[in-house]
Design a protein around this nucleic acid. Structure first.
Length: 178
DNA sequence: GATAGGATTCACT
DNA sequence: GTGAATCCTATCA
């Protein structure tokens, strides 16, 4: 499952000349038709169109009218599968992240330990929707340390009301994750 | 054309 | 622990 493989990978962004990166420590898998919690389960639409591209594209959408969430498309073209990045561990550009997140953030690990937070910390926005993570100069993925199975926890997905029976949330066993 | 609700976060009690 | 902020999209009349 791609959501499992993404744990430990490094998400890198460059914005305004500042490079920021974070190690992925929490993900959630969303399938296409058949997964009632997924935006794509009713088929392609204006909003979820990027999910139906081939794997490696970015899907960025607005949630609750105020926060953006970042997904990595994980399926083949037409499948509608994607992985929501829920949390990263800040690596490079921590100063830039603090500047974007504001003074309220005390600990480094609070900079990006949530879907809406990491998007702000890394400077991701709606302009990154549809981006190809293999060729876009603003955002991409790099291989990182593989997280051993012993440190990976699986749990039900968070913040959804349907499809709760699937344990498709993957968390790297990091105490600060949440 | 109108309305309900959401893959969240933060301040406040 | 509870509730508000805020707006786009899908769904229904």
């Amino acid at each position: 499952m791609v959501a499992r493989e993404l744990l430990g990978c490094v998400l890198v962004t460059v914005r305004d000349g500042a490079r920021t990166s974070g190690r992925i420590v929490e993900t959630e898998a969303y399938l296409g038709v058949g997964d009632p919690a997924s935006h794509s389960h009713r088929g392609p639409s204006m909003r979820n169109a990027p999910m139906f591209l081939h794997g490696g594209h970015a899907y960025v959408y607005l949630i609750y009218g105020m926060y953006w969430c970042f997904n990595v498309v994980s399926g083949d073209e037409g499948e509608g599968e994607a992985v929501l990045i829920r949390a990263v561990e800040p690596l490079d550009g921590i100063e830039a992240m603090r500047a974007r997140r504001g003074d309220r953030v005390r600990r480094d690990r609070d900079l990006a330990n949530g879907p809406g937070k990491l998007v702000i910390a890394l400077g991701i926005g709606p302009e990154h929707n549809n981006a190809d993570l293999f060729s876009d100069p603003r955002v991409w993925l790099e291989a990182g340390e593989t997280v051993p199975d012993a440190l990976v926890r699986r749990t039900p997905r968070i913040g959804i009301s349907r499809g709760v029976e699937h344990e498709w949330r993957y968390v790297a066993g990091d105490p600060g994750a949440r």
